[in-house]
Design a binder for these strands. Sequence first.
DNA 1: CGCCAGGTGGGAT
DNA 2: ATCCCACATGGC
Length: 243
Amino acid sequence: MKKKLMLIYKKLLNNYGEQGWWPIINNYTCEYNKSFKHDKKTTKQKFEICIGAILTQNTAWKNVEKSLINLKSANIFSPNKILSTPDSKLTSLIRPAGYYNVKTRKLKEISKFFLEHKDDFENESLSREELLKVWGVGKESADYIMLYALNKPFFIVDAYTIRIFSRMGFFDEKRKYDFVQDFFQKNLPKDYKIYNEYHALIVEHAKRHCRKKPLCNGCILRKDCRYYFKNDKELKRKKLKKI
DNA sequence: CGCCAGGTGGGAT
DNA sequence: ATCCCACATGGC
């Protein structure tokens, strides 16, 4: 199993290349680059990852980018600025990311938390349990922050992770966050760089091929995939019937 | 037009 | 525990 998961990782990496997560805004061009490396983030970048993690909840990253650029352009990009901005103003800026009323509250909650735990963010001594107490921060958002802001080895589980690996036959699609996270953490080296890149590759693969309605044509994992074989057999049966 | 997107909290059963 | 729903814009 350990080899299998690493093999899939290498196939994805060979095919899609390094993803360079987490995307961080370029201060000069106000554009997002994905050439970001695994080095230690500045405090500002850590906070940027926190608000990105909130805004991207059940939302396409493209829409999150628009909201982040709005915030950046309005010079509302720090915990203090967010806390001192009226809800109505914040709401209008993050509008493209959807759920703007709840997310406005969530941004204020994480900002308050960030200020209260500034030392923990700077020393990278923050605990996941503390993060999970913040209203609006669930397991996935907490792990995004732990992994991408603080380089801690927490494997991210999202809808894509469960979709891809349940289709491939590793576990049932009804498995929940903790089970799936344990599964990956038990079967992969405990290395934040691998977790970082693996998750980003999963997102890329889900977008390109393993969609809700899968595009198995050209999928590099289909030889390893139960879902594909199941449909392949059905396809052959239909063809035989025709003949 | 309908479906989907890098979830979460809250309430009912 | 588990299911169900509200939350909402923009891209295809």
